[in-house]
Structures are given as C-alpha cells and as structure tokens.
Amino acid sequence: MGYFDGFLVTLKQIFSDRVTSEYPKEKRPKPLRHHGRHVLNRYEDGMEKCIGCELCAGVCPARCIYVRGADNPPEAPVSPGERWGFVYEINYLRCIHCDLCVEACPTEAITESKLFEFSFTNREDAIYTRSELLVGDDGKPKKLPWEDWRGGDDDHTSAWMRATSPNGQAAYEGRVQWSGELGYGVRAPEAGQSGDPELAPPTDVEATAKGPLYAGSDTAPGERASDHRHVEAS
C-alpha cells in the first residue's frame, strides 16, 4: 500500500487499549513505596513511637516539620522512652515528600502512606497536627474529610522500612530490623527486591538478632547476597 499504510495504523488504534484513564473515577495502582502523606506510628501496645528527638525537623530540607518534645508523665507515659513528642506538626504547603524525615527517625515513628490526593482549602487544614497524623486504634491512618483515600492507600505505611532496613544498610535487606506496629504486629519484610522472591535472604528474626550479619558469610559487606546467586542462576 505504501503511502496508505499510515491510515491503517491510525485506524487500528481505535480498537486498541486506552493509555489514559478516567482519573478521579479510577486510579492507577501506586508504587509500594510511594511518598505520600505521613503517619505517626504506634507500638503494638498502643504506645507512640515518637520520642520528640526532633531529628526529623532537623533533617527536613523544606523546614516543614515542627516538633517539641516533653518528658513523659510517669504515671501515664505516652511513649516507651523518656520523652514524647507532644507537639508534632507538618506543614503540607511546604513538604516536598523527600522521605528524609522517615530515614532520620530513630524509632520508625514517622513513615509515609501512599495518599497524595489531599486538597485542603485553607492554611489551617494544610498544617497537620499530631492528632491528625497519629494512626488510629486499628493501626490505620486517620482519614480526614478532604483526603481521597482509596483501597490500599493506607496499607504498607512503613514500606520503606521493610524494603531496605532502618539503618539503610543494603546487606540487611530481608532481615527484620524494625519494631512491631499497632494493628499489624511485626510486619514481614518486603520480598523480592533483588528479583526472584525465592532467592531473597531468609527472614529469621532470631538469627538476625544473635550476631553480626556478615559472620560466616562469603558475601562482602554492602554487596547483596542474592546478586551472586542471581548470576549463577542465569
């Protein structure tokens, strides 16, 4: 056909799938480690994880976090530590969702949910306070009226933690290095980051707790054990 091939190409597109979706009605699946609105986590017994150390506020490049710590009241402690964050505010007009606060937090108190569609209409709503950020008694984030939560947005709120490890060492991949969460307990590591989930390192909590990770391993620090296996397999 020569000159007319192009017409066939455009005609065929009518019957092929659409690349766009009807956005507000249906949403695309979000990545597991999507950086969305923050949550303040609690331990399984309901204690808050935040100890008011202000490391998140210090590391924040947008200066959007304001924390003030206070000594725990001895008769009714809020957190298991010495202090607790009695003021915790995030200004979402400033937040750039870089996740540095999550990485800085020593107690995994602050993590991010997958929610990014929250259209507040005034500055007061834009500043989330401690009570709004704190997870509810079921361990799920609180859902504010202007937030558009869809199924699955409130799962995996600590996904980053479970993807690598709280200390950021890649060699700790797949090892449970995190504390339990209210409503979930100690969550399993995110599997399959190095490819095949079968090849991921064992997730034995006790083994990890006993000694240095590298002992007895032929894998150099910083290298992924599974990388070697992967090469052999292929």
Binding site: T10, Q13, I14, S16, D17, R18, V19, T20, E22
Partner: peptide, 13 residues
C-alpha cells in the same frame, strides 16, 4: 471522540 480513539485517549466524557 474519533481523534481521541485514534490517539489511544478517551476524549471528552
């Protein structure tokens, strides 16, 4: 609508 179909879009809806 037709041009949207030919460009794999949905078009006005």
């Amino acid at each position: 609508k037709v041009i949207a179909d030919m460009q794999n879009r949905i078009g006005p809806n």
